[in-house]
Simulated scan of single mutants.
Amino acid sequence: MAPARTPVKSASDEPRPGLRERKKIRTRQAIRQAAYRLFDEQGYEATSVDRIAEEAEVSPSTVFRYFPTKEDIVLTDEYDPLLHAALVARPAEEPPATALRNAVVEVFEQAMSQDPGREPAEAHQRMRLVRDVPALRARMAEHMSATSRFLTSALAERTGLPEDALELRVCTGALLGALTEALFHWGEGDQTQELFEVVDVALRLVENGLNSAVTAPGPRGRR
């Protein structure tokens, strides 16, 4: 008889953050929202970190404690831990690319449903800024590289493949590339579709080919 499976949990089933972590999240959000207001009013280049700190009612050192650079204020969010949890929680029988697509769409849909007005507005402003500011495009490449590493690690846990396996690196790289293009496409359009729907379509375009390419010596999903 096959061993019983542990029920799969979604990212929304994760324990609620403690008071200290919720305060950190609120501070990060306050800094980010203050920065976005100022970027709209006076432009990205003309907005200093000192001015962002003043607008957010925190010290400049607090801004740098949460965001090492001004670019990180635009590019850093709370999605990575949620994405990791969602990916680990996907059913063991899902192929790697399918599990990654489902995890990404789940996290985006969850974020949009929690604050329907703010999240899409911030996502649109973020992509417009990244499109227009060379320093942000360069920093975004660094962020995507870090995201690729931790997603590759999570997929290695699921499949039993080594973290440096070419198949996993190509899988995460291709899907993150599709995700980036989906974000730009949505940000440049009229946004008649929900962001997570556009992301889902983009990831499905590359999913089938990746699933046939990524094979595992003995899948080790969450049980």
Results as ranks from 00 to 15, higher is better:
Ala97Thr: 06
Glu207Lys: 10
Arg16Pro: 02
Gln191Val: 07
Asp13Trp: 01
Met144Thr: 07
Ala165Trp: 08
Glu71Asn: 06
Ala34Ser: 12
Phe196Ser: 15
Leu210Trp: 01
Ala30Gly: 14
Asp13Ser: 09
Arg90Asn: 01
Val201Cys: 02
Leu161Thr: 00
Pro219Asn: 05
Gly160Asp: 03
Phe39Arg: 00
Gln125Val: 04
Pro96Ala: 15
Glu57Tyr: 15
Thr62Leu: 07
Asn208Arg: 14
Pro162His: 03
Ser10Pro: 03
Ala165His: 09
Asp200Trp: 00
Gly117Ser: 15
Ala97Ser: 10
Ala156Cys: 03
Ala182Cys: 05
Ala99Ser: 08
Trp186Leu: 01
Pro116Cys: 02
Ser145Cys: 04
His143Ala: 11
Thr76Pro: 04
Ala121Tyr: 08
Ala11Gln: 06
Asp190Tyr: 05
Glu55Met: 13
Thr152Met: 09
Thr192His: 14
Leu166Glu: 13
Val170Phe: 09
Ala53Asn: 10
Arg26Leu: 01
Ala30Tyr: 08
Arg149Ile: 00
Glu167Tyr: 05
Ala138Gly: 10
Arg139Pro: 02
Pro134Tyr: 05
Glu194Val: 08
Val199Ile: 10
Gly173Lys: 04
Gly43Leu: 12
Gln29Asn: 11
Gln191Phe: 04
Asp164Ala: 11
Thr192Val: 14
Ala46Val: 14
Arg22Ile: 00
Thr76Ile: 10
Leu203Trp: 00
Val107Ile: 04
Leu161Asn: 00
Phe184Trp: 09
Arg131Pro: 03
Ser145Leu: 09
Leu19His: 14
Arg51Ile: 03
Tyr36Asn: 05
Leu176Trp: 01
Gln42Arg: 13
Phe108Val: 06
Pro15Glu: 09
Arg118Ser: 11
Ala174Asp: 13
Glu54Met: 11
Asp72Ile: 09
Ala202His: 14
Thr172Tyr: 08
Gly117Trp: 13
Glu122Met: 15
Ala138Ile: 01
Ser10Gly: 15
Ala2Asn: 12
Thr6Tyr: 12
Val8Cys: 07
Ile52Pro: 03
Leu176Ser: 05
Asn102Cys: 10
Ala99Cys: 04
Arg223Trp: 13
